[in-house]
Amino acid sequence: MAEVLVLVDHADGRLRKATAELLTIARRLGEPSAVHVGPGVEKAQVTLAKYGAHKVYVVDDADTAGYLVAPQAEILAALVEKLAPAAVLVPSNAAGKEIAARLSIKTGSGLITDAVDVRAGDNGIETTQSVFAGSYSVTSTVTAGTPIVAVKPNSAPIEASPAAGVIETVAVPMSDAAKAARVTDSRPKQATGRPELTEAAIVVSGGRGTGGDFGPVEAFADSLGAAVGASRAAVDAGWYPHSSQVGQTGKQVSPQLYVAVGISGAIQHRAGMQTSKTIVAVNKDEEAPIFELVDFGVVGDLFSVLPQATEDVKKRKG
């Protein structure tokens, strides 16, 4: 069976959820092998094996640390040349897409980003993307080189399928060009205890209607175990950090449940959340365009609706 390479998304061996999803999807296309760049593989190996990695290629030398995407692209290019895999899967986040972009040019391979589904089709690998703020669905194939697909989070329920996960250490000499951009300082964000926005199953976002008070939004999110997002209006007003912005110029999320609170639903916002499975809105204005999208909407004041909903959720959860 053909090998499918999966780029491991991790921080010092702590895996992000995307990796298990990519391994699950890779099994539809062939035999998954994980590519782990950087330290911590001893922590990651068990999980990688659990989700179906037959092999784990490891590149862990000082040359890869602190540099941006270029080293990963060189490593993947070397592996693609050596192994001729059926496909390469990467997470569709900023770094994943840039690694994929460089890999595409290095190997003359077609790249599809932001895929929400990947499957084995009659003419090779077939993908689905959601475009123009979710108003169109596009099915594509790769016609040149090794298919490279960047897959959005929450595109597949993760399923375990234990495999050997045999570690193979690989040496890939890094070019000087790959070391031309480096991280000189990194300040971890303050931990909120909430799930990461792009991989959360539930997202609760606040907008202009909060008037800057995200208290009720955060409390409701916490009752549901959700991540907190914000509209561009709320971010531009300085009420919430840009890293939490949902929309065209912020994060694209696709959770099981999206709750828009005090958000009118402009096209820029819709572009970031329209593929969510279930959409709920709370807004004072019954004419707000967000209500065109919702499965359930409450026309009312968020400062009374949300606290009541929060209490009710807590009661139901016991």
Binding site: S104, G110, L111, S135, S137, V138, T139, S140, V142, T143
Partner: peptide, 11 residues
């Protein structure tokens, strides 16, 4: 093009 669009469907 290195990729090919097979179909486009309006949601």
């Amino acid at each position: 093009a290195w990729t090919s669009v097979v179909s486009v469907t309006k949601r």
